[in-house]
Design a protein around this nucleic acid. Structure first.
Length: 174
DNA sequence: CAGAAGATCGGG
DNA sequence: CCGATCTTCTGC
């Protein structure tokens, strides 16, 4: 569509835990209907990994909601939480191995609900192809961000085994 | 079919 | 600390 996107990341087929730290510093890009494009470095993500991970929606099985996570990496998974916040996720991994990365923060905007609002995410983004979309994609970056890992936020319902996994990745210095 | 809880946020 | 607000899942 335009040569501003030739830096786009096109491979999301590796394991979610491998991709998570590499996404920190990469540019989350969104083109709005008026043509305005915003690019924000990703600074916080969380991994949700497979049917065994009780914090992962895919542990509930294959449903209309979780279906996209069973696809090959590179699609968008969105869902509404608490009746008002759209959570933006990137599907990763090979086909039939459901995984996703929750975007919890970009530069200047911390919190998954806030990110969804900043990027005007809604149900129409469910299943969007990050490799082809002209309204949301991710671009390479030369800088790699140092980071720390912590427990995931708000997943106590999954029980200690899964809630304690250090699958939240936060870039340092923000 | 009713009820509860949720990968959250902002106001008081 | 609590209410907003609605989808999804679970139990009867």
């Amino acid at each position: 569509m335009n040569n501003l996107q030739n830096n786009r990341i096109t491979n999301f087929s590796n394991d979610v835990l491998e991709i998570c730290p590499t996404l920190l510093g990469k540019y989350l890009c969104r083109r709005f209907e008026d043509g305005i494009i915003i690019r924000k470095p990703i600074i916080e993500v969380e991994a949700y990994r497979g049917i065994d991970d009780l914090a992962c929606h895919a542990s509930k099985g294959r449903t209309k909601r979780t279906e996209i996570m069973f696809a090959n990496g590179g699609y968008v998974y969105v869902y509404l939480i608490y009746g008002m916040y759209w959570m933006l996720n990137i599907v990763t991994g090979p086909i039939e191995l459901p995984q996703a990365i929750l975007i919890r923060g970009v530069e200047g905007c911390i919190g998954p609900g806030r990110v969804g609002r900043l990027l005007a995410i809604d149900a129409s983004f469910y299943g969007e192809n990050l490799i082809k979309s002209n309204r949301i994609w991710i671009e390479e970056s030369k800088s790699t961000f140092p980071f720390i890992q912590t427990e995931r936020v708000g997943v106590g319902y999954a029980g200690p085994e899964w809630a304690k996994k250090p699958w939240r990745f936060v870039a340092k210095g923000f």
